[in-house]
Computed example of a mutant assay.
Amino acid sequence: MRLANTRAPTLRWVTRLIVAAGGGGDAVAAAVVDAALYGGSGSPAVILTYAWDRLLVDPVPGPRGPGDLTGLTPLTRSVWAVPPTARPIAPAGSTLPRLASELPHTFALIDPQHGAEGIAHQITSLVHHLNPESIDLLDVGGDILAKGDEPTLRSPLADALTLSACSQLKAHVRLLVAGPGLDGEIPAEDLTARMGPPVLTFTSNHIAPISSVLEWHPSEATGMLAAAARGVRGLCEVRDAGLAVPLTDQSATLHEAPLHQALHRNKLARALLTTRTLAQAEQYSREICGYSEIDYERIKASRLATQPARKLDPTRTLHRLAEFETAARRRGITHTTFRRITEALGFGGEHRQPLRELLINRRPLQYEAPLWRISRDA
């Protein structure tokens, strides 16, 4: 790892810390929550997040650590900020440098290589450095409130690690859930009893500061949160598995949930409390949940590496899109994400943005930012 400098930046005016529970889209949503809850008082919050963009952006399975990026700046001895000039070391990829260039927040890196104990140490050191007035742990979708044995659960590890780490802090941490059910893992109706009433309902005005980010960022859950805040309703198909996620009035809400009740409920998070390596955390996930999401990424990455490169031919692509839309209508689907279209048509992550541009240019009326509306043609 090469450092941009060895002097920690001065953050005298920062008074808020938001921990993005699952990384990726949670970090983008954290910027929305910061503006919506705090109204821009003081400087923008520090957002502590994983560099874990899944295979659509990063072809390397699992989360990235400080050794996977150049140009980081130290905040504390164990926490690094990701400035706009930082770069992932090939073949790794990361959306964090671009986020840092487009949003006014400071993005700091969660390094899970030393398990929940290591993350707890990182957050503690950052709290001592910043002395923030508030600490929020944010999850989009609500799978952080899972028990761990739900058959629909797909990616519990990142959330469980941050929940486990935050529960060990001596400072007060508020657990927030945005867009219940939007990650397609725990249905919104199952989360109702696990969280309080809405703290607020997001509107298009809340989403405006991240509009440019949503034009390129691959997060499906935060994309659906933005669409719901803009008034989009229907049934949205996501991921390579084609999960169907309802977009309702509740999809645009933000809730507070009792953190220690969430820890008591979450079997995986409790098991991770004393973990000191990511490998340990993965093994607990295999034992409790029946799988490790990083194992899934490893298998998928291996499969993708053997697939021949596919050319983005506009005519053939639009024909295949029409077939996909016909089948989606039969399933009752009204919207989908560009990640879902990319993978359903057999393209790799490098084709997602060119494919998105092709579709929007050819059929602009079907673009309900940042989602794609399924054609109603019979």
Rank of each mutant, 00 (worst) to 15 (best):
I299T: 13
V79I: 04
P187T: 08
I89M: 13
A30N: 05
L17R: 03
A229F: 02
A228S: 13
A81V: 00
A322W: 09
N5E: 15
D111F: 08
P198L: 01
V140L: 07
E256G: 06
L56N: 13
S41R: 14
H172W: 03
S204I: 06
L3G: 00
H319Y: 08
I333W: 02
T85H: 14
G242K: 04
H335C: 04
H114Q: 14
E150K: 07
V127C: 13
L17S: 01
V60S: 09
L11I: 03
A27E: 02
V28A: 10
A322G: 04
A227S: 07
A20K: 02
T10M: 15
A30R: 02
A45E: 05
I341D: 02
S134C: 04
R98E: 13
I119V: 14
T70Q: 11
K311L: 10
T222C: 14
V213E: 02
A165C: 07
T203G: 13
I119G: 01
A208G: 02
T274L: 12
G39V: 01
A301L: 12
L3C: 11
A279V: 11
A227N: 08
A90Y: 11
T201I: 06
A27S: 12
A378V: 12
I341A: 03
E237S: 12
Q168G: 04
L318M: 14
V82S: 06
G40Y: 05
H128F: 08
A269N: 00
G23I: 02
I207E: 05
G22T: 08
S101C: 03
G349S: 11
I144S: 05
D190S: 11
G22Q: 06
L358A: 01
V33Y: 13
L55G: 04
T85G: 14
G346D: 10
P97M: 05
P66Q: 12
W372R: 04
